[in-house]
Amino acid sequence: MAKVKGAIVINNERCKGCEVCVDVCPESVIAMNKNVNTKGYHYAMVTNENCTGCTNCAVVCPDGVITVYRVKVPTEVV
């Protein structure tokens, strides 16, 4: 049985820190950075490795700053 593992890449400079992505993540992967980008926004960041690549965060991001990757992982590898 395969399991999925995902990863997201956040375009920090384009993130406006609206936090809409934070709540929609079923694995609580995303939090807001204490630092700000050059526009002054606290940008979203990845806080753990539980991402499943479900794309919820990217789909709901108003600025489309999140790119999502996903792989199927054979159970024995994990």
Binding site: K5, K16, T55, A58, P62, D63, G64, T67, Y69, V71
Partner: peptide
């Protein structure tokens, strides 16, 4: 994981590659 062959979602290239003028969290962008 972050390799082109594993890409499942990215912003469409038909949206011009620039910052949108909308406020943070505004539904217009989506």
């Amino acid at each position: 994981i972050i390799k082109p062959e594993n890409l499942v979602y990215k912003r469409t290239s038909l949206l011009v590659d620039c910052a949108l003028s909308y406020c943070p969290g505004c539904g217009h962008g989506t």
